[in-house]
């Protein structure tokens, strides 16, 4: 698996996949729907799938002495690697906003989503949806990726919309807590986000392995 991950990084990946990790810093931007940053990292991953398809990556990999299901595992491993890098970066920015910048006026006066643990849970949900809808959808054919990506865009922006509106509903303002306020709620929702990301990724990976096994290349 390490060898295949190395192959993904050195041969198949688009440089844009690495570039968009930097969009984790967008959580610093005041008055901006910061969840959109997680869409951009998925856009970078989409570029890698496009680059890999143009380079006949799947056929090359299928001819290496690896099991066909490992080809799918490697793609998921690469996506998770980029996603974890992004999550680590945006998580670090979130922690800075929750601690050092929790009282900064530009963030206190922000009417949009605040960077807190609930935000991180929404990030994980978007990344999990990318793995389930796009990566899983791609491995139904191992060739077509436009339709799964359009489906992912719709789902991702629905989640962004949900994240930006939920805390405006009376009684749910705590979702947009500053700093360490409502920590129990924030931690609970982050745990739910981790569960959703893991569940969506693992279940779609198993389905993708079954689908890819059946495909004629």
């Amino acid at each position: 698996m390490i060898k295949l991950l190395r192959k993904e990084i050195q041969l198949a990946a688009s440089p844009l996949s690495y570039f968009f990790i930097g969009f984790g810093l967008m959580a610093f931007v005041p008055g901006y729907p910061i969840l959109v940053g997680s869409f951009f990292v998925c856009l970078g991953l989409f570029q890698s799938f496009q680059t890999a398809r143009e380079a006949n990556d799947l056929t090359y990999t299928a001819l290496l002495p690896v099991a066909k299901r490992d080809v799918v595992r490697a793609k998921y491993a690469f996506c998770c690697f980029i996603e974890i890098c992004y999550f680590t970066l945006t998580g670090a920015v979130t922690l800075i906003r929750m601690t050092l910048l929790s009282n900064a006026a530009v963030y206190r006066n922000n009417v949009l989503m605040n960077a807190n643990l609930v935000y991180l849970a929404f990030v994980l949900l978007i990344l999990g949806l990318f793995n389930a809808i796009f990566v899983g959808g791609f491995f139904q054919t191992a060739y077509k990726f436009a339709k799964p990506f359009v489906k992912f865009i719709i789902a991702a922006f629905a989640v962004v919309g949900l994240g930006e509106t939920l805390f405006h509903i009376p009684g749910l303002a705590a979702l947009n807590a500053f700093g360490f306020a409502h920590m129990g709620l924030q931690l609970g929702i982050l745990a739910l986000g981790i569960l959703l990301f893991s569940g969506l990724t693992v279940l779609s990976k198993h389905r993708a392995m079954r689908n890819f096994e059946r495909i004629d290349l």
């Binding site: 050195q10 041969l11 198949a12 143009e54 380079a55 006949n56 990556d57 056929t59 090359y60």
Partner: peptide
């Protein structure tokens, strides 16, 4: 078939 057309053979 042409694999990784823009990568160096060495890589």
């Amino acid at each position: 078939v042409n694999y990784y057309p823009k990568k160096k053979i060495r890589n």
